[in-house]
Amino acid sequence: MSRSENVILTNMCLIEDGQGNIVMQIRDPEMYAWSGAALPGGHIEEKESLHGSVVREIYEETGLTIKNPRLVGVKHWHTGEGIRYLVFLYKTNEFTGTIRSSEEGEVRWIARKDLATMDLAYDMLNLLRIFDQENLSELFYAERLEDDFVREFW
């Protein structure tokens, strides 16, 4: 039995301003299968560190230079082709710069209290539990049942 598998490595970062707001990216449903309001992030490039990738992706997508991003957990599943899709989840409240939108979508500060009323990307409220609950560090989608996934939190 092989101990290796194909993996897609990505990251996502929750950026807080200390006043109850977080940075969200509004993704266009005509451009992305995973659309709606989501946390910014992206793919980890070949030979790039995890830390370096999240700093780079956040700058490219938001215009912010983040500092001291803390790894708080992971989200992962297997694609229909059997590839593990792994998202490293970071959190920070230290940043410089001014937010700006990019070709990936509109970027803006959103009050956390307003998230439940927004058009969010799939399962975003569940994902936020990993960022907020210290007893959780992993969100794994075990299998797909019709139009939804079976979620497992650890």
Rank of each mutant, 00 (worst) to 15 (best):
Q25T: 09
E60H: 10
K47C: 12
N11W: 03
E152C: 10
L39N: 03
L145P: 01
N68Q: 14
W34Q: 06
G36A: 10
P40N: 02
T92M: 05
G52Y: 06
I83M: 10
Q25V: 13
F131C: 05
S101H: 06
R108I: 02
H76D: 12
L89W: 03
V150T: 13
C13L: 11
I22R: 00
G63I: 03
L136W: 08
L39W: 01
E16R: 09
D119A: 08
L128Q: 03
G41D: 04
G20M: 04
Y90Q: 06
I99G: 02
E61T: 10
K113I: 06
A37K: 07
D114A: 09
R70D: 02
E104P: 02
T98K: 11
T65E: 13
F131S: 09
A142R: 15
G82L: 04
A142G: 07
A38G: 09
F149L: 07
N6L: 15
E106F: 07
V7S: 04
E48A: 06
F88N: 13
K113P: 01
V55W: 01
T10A: 09
A121N: 08
D147Q: 11
G80D: 12
D28S: 09
G20F: 05
L139Y: 12
M24A: 05
S49K: 06
R56I: 04
E81G: 05
N21K: 13
L127H: 08
N135D: 14
E81W: 04
Q25I: 13
L127E: 15
L145S: 08
D17Y: 00
I26K: 12
R144A: 12
L120W: 09
D132L: 09
A116M: 11
F88A: 10
E103R: 12
N126R: 11
I58Q: 00
G82H: 08
I15P: 00
E143D: 14
K91I: 00
Y90A: 02
L125K: 15
N6E: 15
M1K: 02
W154I: 01
V72C: 12
G80R: 06
V87A: 02
E106A: 07
E48M: 08
Y141P: 02
I26F: 14
L128V: 04
V55L: 09
G97L: 04
P40W: 02
D123T: 03
E30K: 13
W34L: 06
E103V: 09
N68P: 03
M124S: 08
G97R: 07
L9M: 11
R151F: 15
F140W: 10
I83F: 08
G18R: 03
L89K: 10
K91R: 15
K91C: 07
R129L: 07
